[in-house]
Design a protein around this nucleic acid. Sequence first.
DNA 1: CCTCAATGTATCCAGTGGATACATAGCCAC
DNA 2: GTGGCTATGTATCCACTGGATACATTGAGG
Lengths: 188, 188
Amino acid sequence: MPGRAAYHHGDLAAEAVDEALRMIAADPSASFSLRALAERLGVAHRALYNHFATREALLASIAARGFESLAETLRAAPDAPAFLAAYVRFALANPGLYDVMTQRDHAQINAHLGLRAGVDRVIAVALGVLASPGADDDTRRREVMRVWMVAHGGIGLQRAGMLRLRSDDQFVEEILHIAGLATKGEKA
Amino acid sequence: MPGRAAYHHGDLAAEAVDEALRMIAADPSASFSLRALAERLGVAHRALYNHFATREALLASIAARGFESLAETLRAAPDAPAFLAAYVRFALANPGLYDVMTQRDHAQINAHLGLRAGVDRVIAVALGVLASPGADDDTRRREVMRVWMVAHGGIGLQRAGMLRLRSDDQFVEEILHIAGLATKGEKA
DNA sequence: CCTCAATGTATCCAGTGGATACATAGCCAC
DNA sequence: GTGGCTATGTATCCACTGGATACATTGAGG
C-alpha cells in the first residue's frame, strides 16, 4: 500500500513503478521481470510482493500511470486530427508501456482503482475533443469508439508489420486519411 | 523441416502444430509451453527443437495456420458487413490463436514463408469483398485498412474490457454500426 | 552388412513468478 | 524506557520455463 512513508527503503512501491517505467522504456522488447527490477532497486525480489500482491498487480499500477500520462498528453490536442495523431504517437513512442496498458486482463481494469480511473480520464478527454457537442450520448460514445478503434487497431497492425508503411510519420498521415480526419479538409 | 516422412514418430512437426492449436483453443489464457506440448505428444520436450529452431518459430507456424483458416472463413462472406462480422467472430471465438497470429514480431512475418502467405491471402480476400471495384489501388487499400483497423482495434478494446459491451453479439452489432456498415440481417 | 545423417532422449543450465519462514525496524501502549 | 505488534525486507526453496550439449536410436542407401 503506497502512502506509507519510508521504513527501510523509502516508498518502495512508488520507486518500483518509476523504475519499471524506465526499464520498459529502455527496452520494450525485453520481457519485464520482477527480479531484474528488484536488482535495479537494490532489494530482494521478494520485497516487491509486500507492495504488490502479484506481478500482474504491479503491471496494473504501471498501466495506470501510463493512462494518466496519456490523458495528460491528449488534453493538449485541440481537435480530432490532433487527438488521433497524439494518441498514435504516444503509442509508437512508448511501445512497451502501451502494451502493458492495453494488454491487461478484462477483470483487472475494473479491479484496480487507479487503472479504471486512468482509462476513464482518457475517455473523458476523448469525449471532449472527438464527440459532437449536441448529439445524444450513444452517438457521442460511438464517435469516440470509432476513432479509438481505428487508432488502436492501426497501431497494432503497424507494429505487427501488417501494413507496408515505412516510417511512423507516414503511418500517422495515413491513419488520419483512413479515419477521415485528413489534415487539410477535415470533418467532424 | 516438414515434408519428411515418419522416422520415429511420424510427422512430428505437423502433429505439434495440430496439438498446439488444440491446446491454445482449450485454454487461451494459459501461456503456451513447449513442455506441456511435448508431454501431450508423448515426446521429450527437446524433440520439438529438431523441427522448430525456437519456440517463436513454432508459434509462427501456428500463426500461419491461423491465417489460412481465417482466410477460408472470410471467403464465405458475401459483403462488407458479413466480412467484418466474420472477422470479429473468428477472433472472439479463437482468442488465443488470434493473439498468436497478431502478436508475431514484425520481422517474423516476412521471414516465415507460410506466415507471409497466410497474411497475404487474408488481404486478398479482403480486397475482393471490401474494396470498390473501380477505384484506384490507393483507395482500395485504404478501404480495406479502414475496416481492418476498426476490426482489430475493436477486438483489442473489447477483450481488454475498455468497452462496456456485455455480450459478443452486442459487440458485433455495435462495431458494424461504428464502422458505418448497416446492421440489417447479418449473422455468421 | 555398415555407415551416416536425421530424429529423439537424458540431463543440465540460468532464469522466472511465487511461497514459506525468518529477521529487522519503527510505532504505540503501558 | 520497554515490550510487543505490525509493516517491511531477506533468505531460501519450489515448480516451471526456454534453451543447450551430449548421446542413443533408427532407418535408408551404399
